[in-house]
Amino acid sequence: MSLQTRPGAPSLHPDSDDGPDEESSEDRATQRPGSGRTMVMPLARSLAILSAFTPEAPWLGNQELVLETGIPAPSVSRMLRSLVTLGYLHYSPQRRKYRLAAAVLSLGYSAIAHSHVQRVARLEMQSFADASEAYVVLGTRDRLDVIVLETCANKPAALDLKLYAGTRLRIASSPMGWAMLAALPELERFYLLGNIERKTGREWPHLRRRISEGISQVHNVGYCMSLGEWEPELAIVAAPLFIPDHTPLVLACIARSARMGRARVERELGPRLVAAAQSLQEKALFKE
């Protein structure tokens, strides 16, 4: 059983325009349309390459990385050589493929090991998981995905969701994504929805409707939900988290749909998830 997870790194397109694959072009910083922010393309491409490696795909070759990231092949080759030299990737001549090296692990550990938000979140999430017999997930946004930061499960729930830190969920097609979009400033949300529209093509009308419904739910009651819609056996409820000086977060509760019908969500689980999110926000502020 699995949610619609998204392995690998999001392509740089359409968030940026690769343009001609020349050194001078790569060294140039580009302005992201409508964002008011400048993107340094070599850095963005290197991070996209590192993000492509997952537990399901620990070894990747040049062509696989080209397909996964949308970066031109000559650029991928140059970036790979640099990342190996810097110690972020290991190259196997026998496999003719690359995998993440220890330097990347140290970066990830530094990012999360001392996060007071996640330390507080673990206790709040485990308490909620035990009380609701559900799987609880904390996530944040990475481009057009929600990336999982933390998970807690209730043992009797026995849900094998294969969600772990670093798992990606499409922001357009998951309640966690809808809750995240609802938490973003209007201009940023508008920019992201434009990118989603360009990437999804014929899926867009349906996704636009569900995204709008999810955002409206969050604005009206503080959470959004999906009951057996994306996975017949699963019900998902998600609520945004607002903590100053942190990127927006989202808290989600996942359980078997047989145990989590609409009436129970509206009467019990939805309000409790919103209360848990508010409690986490208050505790995180207190411990700053």
Rank of each mutant, 00 (worst) to 15 (best):
M1T: 15
C152S: 09
P244M: 14
W230I: 08
N62G: 11
R95L: 14
H90W: 11
Y88P: 01
G61A: 06
L285F: 01
E133V: 00
S25M: 13
A276W: 09
R267M: 04
G61M: 03
S51F: 09
R119M: 11
G166R: 02
L234C: 07
T85R: 10
L280V: 09
H206N: 11
G270L: 07
R259N: 08
F53K: 01
N62V: 10
G34W: 00
R267H: 01
E124F: 10
L181E: 02
H114I: 00
R119E: 07
K162R: 09
P240H: 04
S115R: 08
S82G: 12
G61F: 00
E56S: 12
Y135W: 06
L80G: 04
F128H: 14
D21G: 15
I243E: 14
L107P: 02
E26K: 14
E68T: 08
A158Q: 12
Q118N: 05
S92K: 12
T30E: 13
A263H: 00
V250E: 05
F190P: 02
L269T: 10
G270H: 04
R168F: 10
Y88I: 00
S24P: 04
S46Q: 14
Y191H: 07
L227K: 06
Y135E: 00
A276T: 15
L12Q: 13
Y223H: 05
L100K: 06
T5S: 15
A129N: 09
L138M: 11
S2E: 11
W178M: 11
D160G: 05
S226A: 15
E282C: 00
T140M: 08
L159H: 00
P175M: 05
L159E: 01
P42Y: 01
S16K: 05
A29G: 15
G70V: 14
P244F: 10
A258Y: 08
L50G: 08
A172Q: 08
H206F: 03
G194M: 01
V136W: 01
K199R: 03
K287G: 00
G34N: 04
L107S: 01
H114Q: 05
I196Q: 07
G8M: 10
P58V: 13
T54F: 09
P185D: 13
S212D: 14
T30I: 10
G270T: 06
E203H: 02
P93L: 11
V137L: 12
N220K: 09
L193A: 08
L67K: 11
G87L: 09
L251H: 04
C224S: 14
G61Q: 04
A238F: 10
R264Y: 00
G139M: 03
Y109Q: 12
G214M: 06
I215F: 12
P271A: 07
L107I: 04
T69R: 07
L285V: 03
